[in-house]
Amino acid sequence: MSQQFADAPDKHIPTNSSLLTKRSTYIYASVAIISLLGLADATYLTIEHITGQSVRCTIIAGCSEVLSSKYAVVGGFPLAMIGAAAYFSVFSLATLAAFGYRFAGTLLNLLVAAMLLVSLWLVYLQAFVIRSFCQYCLFSAAITFILAILLLIRWRKP
């Protein structure tokens, strides 16, 4: 009886995910949890952008040069807002993938690959074009990098 209880958590995985290993589930769950950090970071930056606070030079964050640059807005939307949407999508897809939805795993790989490329481009812009670093933007890039590594580990050893 006690053995049954110990096994209970694994039985959350629906039958259509019988191919999904425990290891993949853990990786997807980690991706979902880590993406929440990115979501929080991007949400905070979006609000700071909208209210104009982050556009000031502050004693703690070095974001004014970055967020007041032309690269901080894409098609009229703050880049941070697009980032928040991307992290929310990552969270949703990773959650679905952890519950055994296989299509979500494929979409997740594509999305994180795209986010990694965008993050690399943004770090390049901060380093060589704007020549100022915003720590919130760097934090976001680090989160994307970690997500990519996790998915790469899962992909290499499915």
Binding site: H12, P14, L36, L39, F88, F91, S92, T95, L96, A98, F99, Y101
Partner: peptide, 11 residues
């Protein structure tokens, strides 16, 4: 089946 969607909606 609906648990992941509930989690997503909560977040």
């Amino acid at each position: 089946r609906i648990l992941p969607f509930l989690i997503i909606l909560s977040v």
